Computed example of a mutant assay.
Amino acid sequence: MSDVTWPYGTFLQRLGPPVRAALLELGVRRRVPPGQIVIHEGVRESHLVLLEEGLTKVTATLPDGRAALLALRVGGDLVGEMSALNDRPRSASVTTCGPATYRVIQPDRFKMFLKEHPDAALELAAMVSDRLRWSNRRRIDFTSYPVKIRVARVVAELCRTHGRQVRDGVVIDVRLTQPELASICGAAETSIQKALRELRTEGLVDTDYRRITVRDLPRLRRMGELEAGED
């Protein structure tokens, strides 16, 4: 898979070609159907999952039993690194949204890989830092912005990470339910429905069954008070 262009910000994209090739040689490749849980929340296990193809959702169980969507991960992303490095139970589950291919890497092999490739260890630290920054930004959004602006910010970010340019806008290639969007935005589902309705009325987005198309991304970014590169 040396000729693959990995999505920006993923762990494989951060690595140079020789280091990337060395990492891809680790572990056992698996192909799974949609709806497969590849990492189970609360389980004490320490292998890592290196995604090669497909989209996954990272979720955690709330006290009332509902699942909160924490993040989306795509081909090139590494998941499960926290338990691999600190030997603690999984803090979240990772579930495939469609057919997916990934490699299962045992922690001892990954730790040896990091020792042999110090640059990869630095990139791992940078990746974890970026994820923490994203989580912190969501917490700040919850307290600083009304729901409509939170939705604009999240949708603009999804355009960057999962958007596909079409003739009249950007289609977000992630099928999210409104409860999932609500969990990312930290809002009630009814508030999300109202915000999306207002964004549609203003000509910023169109919504179909579990799909969002952004019609005017620059104006959506301005509404979300996002500066260049902030999302």
Rank of each mutant, 00 (worst) to 15 (best):
L69K: 08
V38N: 02
L181N: 04
Y209L: 14
V74F: 00
V43G: 00
E225C: 03
K57T: 10
R197S: 12
L122Q: 08
R29L: 05
M223P: 05
A121D: 09
V171C: 04
P99H: 12
L12D: 04
H47G: 00
E45L: 02
T213K: 15
T56C: 15
S129T: 15
D173L: 14
L70I: 14
K57S: 14
A21Y: 00
V79M: 07
G16C: 00
A71K: 10
T61A: 10
L62K: 13
R139T: 09
P107Q: 03
V74L: 00
V43I: 14
A120N: 04
H40D: 13
M223I: 11
V166S: 08
A126E: 15
L217I: 07
E225N: 10
A22R: 07
G169C: 12
V79G: 08
G65Q: 03
R131T: 04
I39D: 08
H117E: 05
V38D: 02
L132F: 14
I192Q: 06
R109D: 07
L55T: 05
E157G: 10
G203E: 04
Q193L: 13
D77C: 07
T96G: 03
A126F: 13
R133P: 03
L62W: 02
Y209S: 15
E189I: 12
G224M: 05
D87L: 13
V154N: 12
M127G: 07
P179R: 05
L132T: 10
T161K: 13
A71H: 10
L204P: 06
W6E: 06
V154S: 11
F113H: 06
L114F: 01
L55G: 02
R131C: 04
R44F: 11
Y102Q: 01
T5E: 15
R137Y: 12
E25Y: 00
S91A: 14
V4A: 07
R139C: 01
D231N: 06
A68E: 15
G229V: 13
R211H: 08
V38W: 01
A68T: 09
L24G: 11
S129L: 14
T5W: 11
T96L: 03
A228F: 13
N136D: 15
V19T: 15
L199M: 08
E116I: 00
S183A: 02
S2L: 04
G27D: 01
L181R: 02
R20D: 05
R31K: 12
P118Y: 06
H40T: 15
V166W: 05
L122Y: 08
R20W: 03
A92H: 08
L181P: 01
A195K: 09
Y8T: 14
